[in-house]
């Protein structure tokens, strides 16, 4: 038991991604799509690939990008109906039954971590694709189609909140072939993520915006 457990009622989830260990295999993206059953055009996690420098001094950098679960999320502030909010454990979620689909939050997110569900489906490629409900809202929504949520609303990464409830890690963390992703309670100073957060290699995306992401990268 860490000190953090006494000061805060719930764990504060955070993620650390070691870029030196990431090989850019996109397994996390695939695991995420499978786990959250996201439709075409919606991907909670992507891997950004960048080539830095000019030949022969070139370096290939892969940056996996889930939702940053910011401490000061710009997306939450602009929602006109408070459909998106920060949970007690620090995860930014969307109430799919309240979202009006105005997409203001998509325009507000500096990380491109939000997607609109236009209602597309993999049904043509995969039989029964519509029959599986997206689990990320923690409630059964039946067969996909029509005007039923989450179609017509905004969707995002929830750190696999439904898995955390069962005591499991997010799908992207579990699947990572190089163990590049670490997940844990940043309120606990002894947790692995807290120790890694203190590393001199640690940085955050777009730190200058003051969003204070809960996803830390190790360069």
């Amino acid at each position: 038991m860490g000190v953090g457990d006494e000061s805060s009622a719930s764990p504060q989830w955070g993620m650390v991604i070691d870029l030196a260990k990431c090989v850019g295999c996109d397994s996390c993206t695939v695991a995420c799509k499978v786990e959250n059953r996201t439709p075409p055009g919606v991907s909670y996690n992507v891997v950004l690939e960048e080539e830095v420098g000019t030949f022969p001094n070139v370096r290939h950098v892969n940056i996996p990008r889930p939702c940053m679960q910011c401490e000061e999320p710009p997306c939450v502030g602009v929602c006109p109906v408070s459909a998106t909010y920060k949970r007690e454990d620090g995860i930014v979620v969307i109430d799919a039954d309240r979202c009006i689909g105005c997409r203001y939050c998509i325009a507000a997110c500096p990380y491109g971590a939000r997607s609109f569900d236009f209602g597309e489906s993999y049904e043509d490629e995969m039989q029964g694709a519509n029959a599986v409900t997206a689990p990320d809202y923690g409630k059964p929504r039946g067969v996909r189609g029509g005007f039923k949520a989450p179609i017509g609303t905004v969707r995002k990464c929830t750190f696999c909140a439904h898995r955390l409830e069962r005591g499991e890690e997010p799908a992207c963390v579990e699947t990572c072939i190089g163990d590049a992703r670490y997940f844990g309670d940043i309120a606990d100073p002894q947790s692995l993520v807290s120790l890694l957060n203190a590393s001199p290699r640690a940085f955050h995306l777009k730190e200058e915006l003051g969003t204070r992401p809960r996803v830390t990268y190790l360069r």
Binding site: P80, V81, S82, A83, R98, C99, I100, G101, C102, R103, F116, D117, F147, A149, I151, G152, T153, V154
Partner: peptide, 12 residues
């Protein structure tokens, strides 16, 4: 995206 919820901004 959800026209049917267009009155919600007045509620919340």
């Amino acid at each position: 995206g959800r026209i049917d919820r267009s009155a919600l901004p007045l509620v919340f």
